[in-house]
Each structure stands twice: as C-alpha cells, then as structure tokens.
Nucleic acid binder design. Structure first.
Lengths: 232, 232
DNA sequence: CGGCAATTTGACTGTGGTCAACGTGGGTGG
DNA sequence: CCACCCACGTTGACCACAGTCAAATTGCCG
C-alpha cells in the first residue's frame, strides 16, 4: 500500500544509489504531509515522534530561551532531512520548525529510525555527514559572531541565504522566500533595528534593494567584499 | 600483533557491549601516541590522515580566522572520540587540537573508518549521537552568545568546565587542567580583559579564587545563579 | 479599505572592547 | 639552587559600536 512514488526521493543525496526495492521499503512507513505557510511542523520540547525529509517549500528552525529570546538555527530547503532528534539520541525536539512558505514533507515515525539504519547502514553514514556539515556551519557562525562586527555578519548571512535560495532576476539575486529583518537579526545575533539600518545604508549605495519580507541583492560582489574583504 | 590491550577501550561508551574479538579487531589498526603538553595532535587545514580516541589527558580544539582571531571550539577529555573529519565527509581538519596536559591518544588511519563502520554499524550510530550532541552544544553556545550578556556567558562556561573536569577540594571545585583567561574569552566570545575583570569581581565576593592558569569555584551555587537566575 | 505586521529613523545610552601600563609567579637554564 | 624572564594576569582611562526605546510610515492581506 505504498502510495508515495519512489521518484520523489530517488534523486536525493540521502537515498542516492539505493535500489528501487529499498526505496519502496523505506517509503512504506512514510506519510506525506502538507504544512501551510505559518504552521509548525514540530515544536521545541515536544516529544520527537517523527523525523522528516522536506519535499517542497521552506522551513525556519528556531530555538527560544527561557526568557523568550529567539534565534534562527537554520532554514531548511527541499531535499533536506530534518527533525532527526532521535537519531542523535534525544527524546524531544531541540527547536521549532515552522513553514515559511507552503511546504510538503515526508514523515517517518521515530521508531522507524533504528530498523531503517540497521537495514540500510549507509543512511546512518550519510546522516552523520549531514549532521557533521551542520556542526561545521554552527562552528563557523560561532567564530563569526565571536570575532566579527555586525555589518560583516549580516553580509555573510545574506550571502548564505542567496546560496541556499537565490533566484536570479534581471536586477540581481532575490532571496526567494519571505525573510524579515528580524530573521536576519536572529541569524546574526543582533537586533532588527541594526539590520534595518545596515540594509538601508546598502540600499542607498545601490547594492541591495529591500522590501517587505524581501531582499534583492543587486551587487553580490560588493556584499562578498563586505563579508570577506579586508576593509580596503 | 595487536600490542594494545582491549581493556583500555572496553569501558568507553563508544565501544560498549562489543565482543572482545571485535575490540581486538578494531585495535589491530590503532597506534597509541603520546603528546606532551603544548604539542599539536593535528593542525587546522592539514589533511585528515587519522581519527582518534583520547585515552588520557586533555586537548583544546581551536579554529582561527583568516585575520588571526581564534576561538576555542571545545576541550576534549579522556574517552572522547575526536578528529572525525573524514567521518563527516571532510578531507582536512577544520580545527587544531593541542594537548593542554600530557596526553595519550589512540589513532586510526582515516582509511580504516569506512571498513570499520561497515563491520560494526553501531559505531556509525554512536558517532552520530556524539556529533549530534556537539551540534546541540554549538547551538546552545550560539543562543547564549546571541542573547546573553558577557557575565552570564562566563558563568556558564565556568560551570561547563567544572562539569567536564572539576575536581572537588575542601575549598571548592577546581578546574583540573590549565585554563587561561584568554581560553575563557575564546569560549565565550569576549576579551581576556573582560574575563579578568569579571573573575576579579567574583573573587572579591569570595565566589571563586583565581590564579595563574587556575580557577577554583568556591561557591558553585552563586555561579549557577549568575548563569541561570533571573537577576533577582 | 481597515488594521496589523514589518520597516524605518532618530535620539540616547551602556556594555564591553581597546590600548597602555604595570604586577606576578613559575619554569628553565646557567 | 637561584635568578631571570616571559607568559599570564590585573587595572585604569577612554570611547565606539550597537542596543534600547519611541514614534512615525509603509504596504499587504483579508
């Protein structure tokens, strides 16, 4: 009764080079779920009942502190695995995942994880690489936030966003999902006011173009220089 | 010709519940290496020729930026696996590991990783949990550094150090390896001057006792309140 | 078209970074 | 074994970056 077509996942790096029978086997326990914009896929501290692969859309993963302060952990794009709490030995989700555009995800029950990696060990190995990559990212962000000033961090964040979800237009590269100044602030460890000021300054130089939940990078090279240059 | 006794690793979580024959098999390719205080086990950007388990001692893992700024990624204690670059799909080490006390580590050639996890899949699974735990830590630090003031971050860092390597003495809990003010600064994203001022203030309240590369926590509860309390 | 969320901008301020100068203790080598 | 020296630590003075708060404006969505 596998009602999900294997072609949906056959191209994903996570499942690359796996035989059709294995894909069908893996999909057997999966459900496909829709999340309209704004809906949470799971909430921080909630029991980790499932793990997921995003098929379509975009999610924002956040963590809140006891006193209500929030940070953006990352944005999830199509093809990525997320909500792997139980794979890393947690009973609950360490963050909240919210759809920022209408999204579709495959969900497996958490109990499926152990049998799945027992049967297909390369899944554990590939997940290890994915999680390792995220650890690298987190260390990069720690290094940046510890040692660099805000403008440079915002430049880096903007470049990352364009790489993750940049759409080329005649005027430049557009981040093709809704991002607020607050999101950028929570990615870079600053405030929405400071982000607004920085983007306004860049806009008056013609390097970017702002808008409500919208950022267009007109001159990626200038932003790159802000992120990596030596100030000359 | 396995010259390393399996009792050295049998008790480690990574190898828990593995049969003696498997441990001998795994140890067959391992070398045991000594690193005197101050010596680097590996350097950032160096080719990832090996992965390691620390048997004895303590290491500091750091990353430097292009312009020479440094952060402390973490301290490694006995029993921990480290230098797992190739397990997470990297060809080089993302940081530098330096012995802060005389240390002994087991080293396996990087090429041994794939065969090893093919034969003992639970190693991949346990390494995934370890790396996942580090990812949680990194996100916690990101959240703290983004949202909290310096004094609170220093309090948290100090508590972590006492949990990782605290030795109880009649006067309090001593961090039982050499830590400089600079180390604390690089852990918390501040400067050695600010750390020195904070520790001096705490010392004049009798909560800690400083010294050259030495920190004694006389009143762990007060430090806990600084880290977690609501300021009352 | 009404209302609300997102954004902008100004004025002010404080935390903590920078730089300089001075102490201090422990390891090393003569 | 002792003295020297250097890495580590302390403290003061200054001030800038970016946080805070307030108020006005914009532009979408329903």
């Amino acid at each position: 009764m596998s009602h999900i077509d294997r072609s949906l996942i056959a191209e994903l790096p996570l499942f690359a080079d796996m035989p059709a029978a294995a894909l069908d086997d893996i999909l057997h326990e999966a459900r496909s779920l829709r999340y309209p914009k704004g809906k949470a896929v799971f909430q921080q501290n909630e029991e980790a009942h499932s793990f997921f692969v995003l098929l379509h859309g975009r999610l924002r993963v956040t963590q809140v502190t006891a006193d209500g302060q929030q940070i953006v952990v990352r944005f999830v794009g199509p093809g990525e695995i997320f909500g792997v709490a139980q794979a890393i030995g947690r009973k609950d989700y360490p963050g909240t995942a919210t759809a920022v555009t209408d999204s579709i995800a495959l969900a497996w029950p958490a109990s499926a994880w152990q049998p799945m990696i027992a049967r297909y060990p390369q899944l554990a190995s590939r997940t290890l690489q994915t999680v390792g990559g995220r650890l690298q990212d987190a260390h990069s962000r720690l290094r940046e936030i510890s040692t660099e000033q805000v403008e440079r961090r915002v430049a880096r964040a903007l470049l990352r966003l364009t790489h993750q979800a940049g759409r080329k237009t005649p005027e430049g590269v557009l981040v093709d999902f809704p991002v607020t100044r607050q999101d950028i602030a929570e990615l870079t460890g600053t405030t929405l006011y400071t982000v607004s000021r920085i983007l306004s300054a860049w806009e008056s130089n013609g390097w970017v173009e702002g808008g409500r939940q919208r950022i267009l990078v007109r001159d990626p090279h200038r932003i790159f220089l802000l992120a990596e240059g030596d100030g000359t």
